[in-house]
Simulated assay, not measured.
Amino acid sequence: MSALRRSRSRVAVAGAALAAVLAVQGCTTTQDPATDRPGGLGPRLARLLDDLVQQHGFPAAQVTIDGPGGHRVLTAGAGDTVTGAPIGDGARVRIGSNTKTFVATVVLQLVAEGKVDLDAPIERYLPGVVRGNGNDGDRVTVRQLLQHTSGLPDYLASGDPAVPPDPGSPQLRPDAEKIRWAHYESADLVRIAMSMPPRFEPGARSVYTNTNYILLGMLIEAVTGRPAAAEITARILEPLGLRDTYFPDPGETTMRGPHPRGYQDIDGARADFTDLDPSWAGTAGAMVATPADLNRFFAAVLTGKLLPAAQVDQMRRTVPFDRGEPGAGYGLGLIRQPVSCGKEVWGHGGSIPGFETRNGVAVDGTVVVVVVNQLPADHAAADAVAQVFNAAICS
């Protein structure tokens, strides 16, 4: 899973016949007609969404905007390449690393309750777990896990096609068929990580690492005595009424409710990758939500509906990190995202085989989620998704 970044994942571009179908289908909208005047937000976003499908090979793309202008949705392409049906307004998608912000929010709630110390070593809460090959839980703090400054190795491979797979590496490649259907416990994933040496000294820099958030999920369970998924549900989903958001049950491979299909390049061909066991993603990226629910969640985090002001302030203290646009910064499960109009924007984003989401909240109350149902094929495609997000958040 990744945060908002230039994707390095391989994806197949649509064939000529499919591209022709999508070009005819074009962009649909449920937004306020007043914004669809010539030169307005609607036509511009419609053109950008159509470009994602027709020029960059995504099966479908959707942008959902909430805030002062109400609820608006624009969609292009096919959420299902067999039926040609678009992504519906209110359809669920796999949200990948946006899961990390849910986890960070629960951890910071525990901090506010005096049950967790941000600057305590993870060894205090998970004795003996972060050990081996130079990894030392006495030297890694909760804050460093939240901010990706721990230096711990990642149990997931990079997914960069420019980096040949190391046949001797224990890292998981989630687009592999055997990984797709395998079930992993959090402890299994951490053991994979601990079989490798640290990447750098704790606190030296910030490198995005999924292992950090698997450990934070284990921390939540250790402190509360309940699974992290149950705490996320009780502390966030139920209070906010996010009925279309959930953490998959153990062994659950299909998606609940209305949802588009998600696609992945497998050996140069587009494959339906909607169904999978997301246990390899766990508390680093397994959750499912609608864009509208995701908008409500991020708005609630930033406006203090889930956390005291002191903890929101902690979340917004950023460091430079190795992903994202130039000028982006990683806080405690939140990313500060630079945009062309200069607005202050906070969000996260996520990638998982089948889906990518870009999202953020602007200080004026505008909240945006952009969804594509296949990972970008190259930097140009990733930049085109970013352009849609930028246009929507700067409206």
Results as ranks from 00 to 15, higher is better:
residue 129 V to T: 11
residue 179 I to M: 08
residue 121 P to W: 15
residue 195 S to E: 11
residue 200 F to I: 14
residue 177 E to Y: 14
residue 169 S to D: 12
residue 151 G to A: 02
residue 163 V to P: 07
residue 175 D to F: 12
residue 213 Y to L: 07
residue 119 D to N: 15
residue 139 R to N: 14
residue 225 G to S: 06
residue 141 T to P: 05
residue 128 G to Y: 04
residue 236 I to Y: 05
residue 148 H to M: 07
residue 238 E to G: 12
residue 190 V to R: 05
residue 181 W to T: 13
residue 164 P to C: 03
residue 120 A to V: 02
residue 132 G to I: 06
residue 169 S to G: 05
residue 131 R to T: 13
residue 154 D to A: 00
residue 186 S to D: 15
residue 138 D to S: 14
residue 218 M to A: 02
residue 140 V to K: 06
residue 188 D to K: 07
residue 205 R to M: 15
residue 154 D to I: 00
residue 191 R to H: 12
residue 194 M to G: 07
residue 128 G to F: 03
residue 226 R to V: 13
residue 187 A to D: 15
residue 133 N to I: 06
residue 187 A to W: 12
residue 239 P to C: 10
residue 117 D to S: 08
residue 193 A to T: 04
residue 234 A to R: 14
residue 115 K to G: 08
residue 140 V to W: 06
residue 134 G to I: 12
residue 153 P to S: 11
residue 177 E to M: 12
residue 242 L to A: 01
residue 210 N to Y: 01
residue 206 S to P: 13
residue 198 P to F: 00
residue 244 D to K: 09
residue 178 K to R: 13
residue 108 L to Q: 05
residue 151 G to S: 03
residue 124 R to H: 15
residue 134 G to H: 13
residue 108 L to W: 01
residue 111 V to K: 01
residue 161 P to Q: 04
residue 161 P to H: 06
residue 222 A to S: 15
residue 135 N to G: 09
residue 245 T to A: 03
residue 223 V to N: 01
residue 124 R to A: 14
residue 246 Y to A: 00
residue 231 E to I: 04
residue 113 E to R: 09
residue 133 N to F: 06
residue 246 Y to V: 00
residue 193 A to P: 03
residue 236 I to W: 04
residue 110 L to Q: 11
residue 178 K to M: 11
residue 163 V to C: 06
residue 212 N to E: 10
residue 236 I to L: 11
residue 144 Q to P: 13
residue 187 A to S: 14
residue 153 P to I: 08
residue 138 D to L: 14
residue 192 I to W: 06
residue 244 D to V: 10
residue 181 W to E: 08
residue 211 T to P: 08
residue 161 P to L: 04
residue 133 N to P: 06
residue 169 S to E: 06
residue 119 D to H: 14
residue 125 Y to A: 08
residue 196 M to I: 04
residue 237 L to N: 10
residue 106 V to N: 00
residue 138 D to T: 15
residue 147 Q to E: 15
residue 227 P to N: 02
residue 149 T to R: 08
residue 144 Q to N: 14
residue 173 R to A: 15
residue 187 A to V: 14
residue 123 E to K: 04
residue 243 R to C: 08
residue 117 D to P: 02
residue 141 T to R: 02
residue 207 V to A: 10
residue 168 G to P: 08
residue 169 S to Y: 03
residue 245 T to D: 01
residue 228 A to G: 11
residue 220 I to D: 00
residue 138 D to R: 14
residue 140 V to Y: 07
residue 206 S to M: 12
residue 116 V to G: 00
residue 242 L to R: 01
residue 186 S to K: 12
residue 199 R to K: 12
residue 125 Y to P: 11
residue 175 D to N: 10
residue 147 Q to F: 11
residue 117 D to C: 02
residue 184 Y to Q: 04
residue 234 A to L: 13
residue 146 L to A: 08
residue 126 L to V: 09
residue 158 S to W: 04
residue 240 L to W: 03
residue 208 Y to A: 00
residue 223 V to W: 01
residue 162 A to L: 10
residue 120 A to L: 06
residue 183 H to Y: 15
residue 131 R to V: 13
residue 215 L to T: 05
residue 105 T to M: 00
residue 145 L to H: 02
residue 156 L to P: 02
residue 216 L to N: 00
residue 220 I to F: 00
residue 206 S to E: 14
residue 119 D to L: 10
residue 175 D to C: 05
residue 186 S to Y: 10
residue 197 P to L: 07
residue 120 A to M: 05
residue 236 I to K: 03
residue 150 S to A: 13
residue 152 L to M: 02
residue 230 A to P: 11
